[in-house]
Design a protein around this nucleic acid. Structure first.
Lengths: 376, 376
DNA sequence: CCCAGCTCTGAATCGGCTG
DNA sequence: CCAGCCGATTCAGAGCTGG
């Protein structure tokens, strides 16, 4: 870290200390009213998972006769498209005011609402940078055989305007994807297992999002110390991941039950720790596994020190799946392996080892473990 | 093919012969004006690949048909969006008028325009059935490294209204996908190689779509002989695939160069023969067999005891094709199955089994045997 | 202890025909 | 328009249980 960086960091710490922002806190109340109370140009990112306005009809049963537990909460009900649009434009306008000029917004939705959201985003002057598809590894089937299986959701990523600057950690994303550019289609399982918050065996929130999804977003489009605002906080996935990645967060939520669950969950979250190990699964179907995926899924913890078989070289795993060697080189496992050996190329999977109970094992072993756990 | 089918086909042929539709032809002209000349409720599908960007070369029309000059420099962004919206709503409204009540529309776009298109689709009363993601196997990389690789496009599939019927060949799609339900994310390569139309080494059209994409759409959502309208015909991918699949088509296109290329291409396309066109049928379309018919014809003897797969419930076949369960319930195979399970509904064909040489087989097997023996 | 098999569930705009 | 009946319809993952 250079001198300028240190100065910038210390200035930043001073700013945050005097900040009127409710950092790392959950604000209870209506999202629009609560956003009005926040100062202009004060946060680096808004992540929003607004109501989808599903407009579900009657009951739905599976072929085996069991009942599908649908989203029936009042917060998802709007009388008309016009009412939904008015609500959407109101909170998007507040978000635009609160964002710093170089901040970005992420919104997730399905075909029920995402087109209305996207049009509003454009009308309010935001500039869409990408739309991202979350491909669900295990979506709910279409039980009646009447349509295609609804197997994805859509995210919109936008800056404050056409000429606005923004953060995009291109190298981190490329490293995370095994030295290929990160594409606009991402595969993750839906949120379940240990990660899914339950109370008395019942899910706390009907639409809890997977941590791996937010992890990739924060890693791609924020820097450590950045402030992320989530106006539809729910059970606090954004807060938990932000804490894990060393980002600051602000949550807005109406329902006390969600707030309680979120507070408990975030308190238990440990920065860059293995706490979420069982929770995040991986891209399925791809025979290739990017090294970054192992990090993303907590098979390898950022900060782990890797060495070669003869302990002549060492390097540290970073949060984006890159390595930083003791001699200053950084990049993918292959590139750093080549650099420290002054070789033209290197297979990082077999070159780098981690120590387990005093014994060295190649990181390819971790990949095998991961594949065994995730491949059929 | 049954007698009724033959009658229906011949009626249909007669209708089409008298039809005022320009079947299997390319109409030269502006898409909105050309659509106005087509009769209401006359086509089974509209497939549309409208212009993606907002600079439409001065060919924008308001809903009233008046011309909009979109290239004027002093137009701000709102005006540009408004002009695109007006154009979009105008052609979508015409498409709604031209579609039969059980027809559907497909529109493809990218994040530049698809949100505006989707919102317009909803506002005009269409009912979105799915959004489909075309994952490009070989997308163009993001050369500047400033965003995620834009590796997909989005399609919207919608019926004419919430209660409208529509065609969806569920079994064909499931068969095409190795006996798993077809999902909402489809992977195809971009159009290239032999398929890509070129003239003097230069591609004829900048956004020619892969035939495989249209093939899947027509196979999923139309029947042989159905009429498909493409108001942005370009180089005629829709026409070539429709001809190949035994569907009728109408294309609208402004540019003579595209029309020439499309006409040549479609003339060279070879229709699949009828045996290749046969697709997986849904049991819904198969001839119905009442359970009582099996008893009447001695495929099942009155007094036979049926059980469920786990032998938890049992019932006796009566002479009139009704069942009498051990617990006193009686009625149709479906009703008794539902009653003994205390379920809202039940498919008796798969629920009830009979024992043959100590092995249980569903009574649907008996129905299959009967159908094989009695159908030509 | 392990494995095979069974159960449960997830942001879902999820019939058609007859009387 | 509504009630009632007919009968078609599911994938992957996690967790539990019994052998």
């Amino acid at each position: 870290m250079g001198v300028m960086d240190k100065v910038a960091r210390s200035q930043r710490a001073a700013e945050l200390a005097e900040s009127p922002l409710p950092l790392d806190q959950i604000v209870m109340g209506d999202c629009i009213a609560a956003m009005r109370a926040l100062p202009a140009k004060s946060v680096d990112m808004v992540f929003a998972d607004p109501p989808y306005n599903l407009q579900l009809g009657g009951e739905l049963f599976r072929p085996d006769g069991s009942h599908v537990d649908a989203v029936t909460d009042d917060w998802d009900k709007f009388d008309t498209f016009a009412a939904y649009d008015a609500f959407t434009r109101a909170w998007l306008a507040e978000a635009h005011r609160i964002l710093k000029d170089d901040g970005t917004i992420w919104v997730i939705g399905s075909y029920h609402n995402i087109f209305r959201v996207g049009a509003a985003v454009q009308d309010l002057g935001y500039w869409i940078l990408n739309d991202i598809v979350w491909r669900k590894a295990n979506p709910m089937p279409n039980f009646r055989g009447t349509r295609f299986t609804n197997a994805h959701e859509t995210l919109i990523w936008a800056s404050k305007g056409e000429k606005a600057k923004y953060t995009f950690n291109y190298r981190s994303m490329k490293t995370l994807n095994d030295e290929l550019q990160m594409r606009s289609d991402w595969e993750f399982p839906i949120c379940g297992g240990q990660e899914r918050l339950k109370k008395g065996g019942v899910k706390v929130h009907p639409t809890q999002k997977p941590e791996a999804l937010i992890y990739r977003i924060l890693l791609a489009c924020t820097k450590p110390g950045d402030v992320v605002l989530d106006p539809f906080f729910g059970t606090g996935t954004t807060g938990a991941v932000a804490k894990r990645l060393g980002r600051r967060w602000i949550g807005i939520e109406r329902e006390l039950a969600y707030i309680d669950a979120a507070a408990e969950r975030i308190a238990a979250a440990l920065p860059l720790d293995e706490s979420a190990l069982a929770t995040m699964q991986s891209p399925r179907g791809a025979p290739k596994v990017a090294f970054g995926v192992l990090v993303e899924n907590n098979y390898l913890t950022p900060g782990t020190v890797l060495v070669d078989a003869k302990r002549r070289h060492s390097a540290t795993v970073r949060a984006d799946g890159s390595l930083a060697s003791a001699c200053g080189a950084s990049g993918s496992i292959h590139k750093v392996g080549a650099t420290v050996q002054q070789a033209p190329a290197c297979n990082g999977w077999t070159f780098w080892h981690r120590e387990v109970d005093g014994v060295l094992e190649p990181i390819d072993r971790v990949r095998q473990t991961y594949l065994l756990a995730t491949q059929p």
